[in-house]
């Protein structure tokens, strides 16, 4: 009886997953659909006669945008880790005075809507001449991840056994060497989790891209899709092909780093 119950649950689970992922399937399906079939009624549920027109268009037109997004993602990861990891060390292991206040400020920082930050950045960048530049966008995108990164590093580093640090001190290692040779190697998983989220957020960002980089020569893929929709309302197969390509990093990360994703989402919402 239990056996049958388990199968029944698997079947139901498959149905739920299929329903949930239907939009994703539809995106892939449309990306392979012939332009003349896009408005067919009833619509083609499966691309029996697939076309790669959409993908050809992506590779002809979107490579610079994909490259820009990659650059911005990597830049944002680097900036986030360089700022957040030492700060986490200071908060967790060096007992920074005022640490509570700083933690509190980081929580508040996460509540500020991106649209407000975008306006502030626009005004600041306008004076500094940083509008429509890649470094400007990297800095703006990193603001999504830095507070998260600091809090995650702090939480993880607090769990590093004190004995290790004391042993290092006895050996004459200063704060810097302890950080570089003990704390950082031990925090490898946290670095991965933080990097992963910093990359995904920068890669997916639309608000900052569409405000402080709207007239840039190099625009990221999200903005490129948006402009594409505005200009080609009929070429939905090409739009969806771009969307599929833009989703690839997420798909890769889900497959190779699912553990870190789940760790990042639940990091602290649950007390253990």
């Amino acid at each position: 009886m239990t056996e049958r119950k388990v199968w029944w649950k698997t079947a139901l689970g498959l149905v739920f997953t299929a329903l949930m992922l239907f939009p994703v399937y539809w995106m892939v399906n449309v990306s392979f659909t012939q332009t003349r079939d896009l408005r067919a009624d009833p619509p083609h549920w499966f691309p029996w006669d697939p076309t790669f027109e959409g993908y050809e268009a992506v590779f002809a037109q979107q490579l610079p945008a994909l490259g820009t997004s990659l650059l911005i993602g990597l830049g944002s990861v680097l900036l986030t880790v360089v700022i957040a990891a030492p700060a986490g060390y200071a908060l967790a292991l060096l007992h920074l005075r005022g640490g509570r206040t700083l933690n509190f400020l980081l929580l508040v920082a996460q509540m500020i809507p991106a649209v407000v930050m975008a306006m502030g950045f626009y005004a600041v960048y306008n004076n500094l001449g940083l509008l429509n530049t890649i470094p400007g966008l990297i800095v703006a995108d990193s603001t999504i991840a830095v507070p998260f990164g600091v809090l995650l590093f702090t939480a993880f580093m607090s769990g590093i056994p004190r004995e290790l640090l004391q042993a290092a001190r006895v050996d004459g290692a200063g704060a810097w060497r302890t950080f570089w040779e003990i704390v950082m190697p031990m925090s490898r998983n946290s670095v991965l989790t933080v990097s992963l989220f910093a990359f995904l957020w920068a890669w997916s960002d639309f608000i900052f891209a569409s405000t402080i980089n709207r007239n840039g020569d190099l625009i990221p893929i999200t903005l490129s899709i948006y402009n594409y929709i505005g200009n080609n309302t009929t070429q939905w197969n090409a739009i969806m092909a771009t969307a599929v390509v833009a989703s690839i990093p997420a798909a890769i990360l889900l497959v190779i780093a699912q553990r870190y994703v789940a760790a990042g989402v639940t990091a602290g919402a649950i007390k253990d």
Binding site: G159, W201, T266, A267
Partner: peptide, 16 residues
């Protein structure tokens, strides 16, 4: 979503 690890912070700090 960005705010999840919010909780981590407070937790980590008390441990610290």
């Amino acid at each position: 979503m960005t705010s999840t690890p919010a909780d981590v912070g407070t937790r980590g700090e008390s441990r610290g």
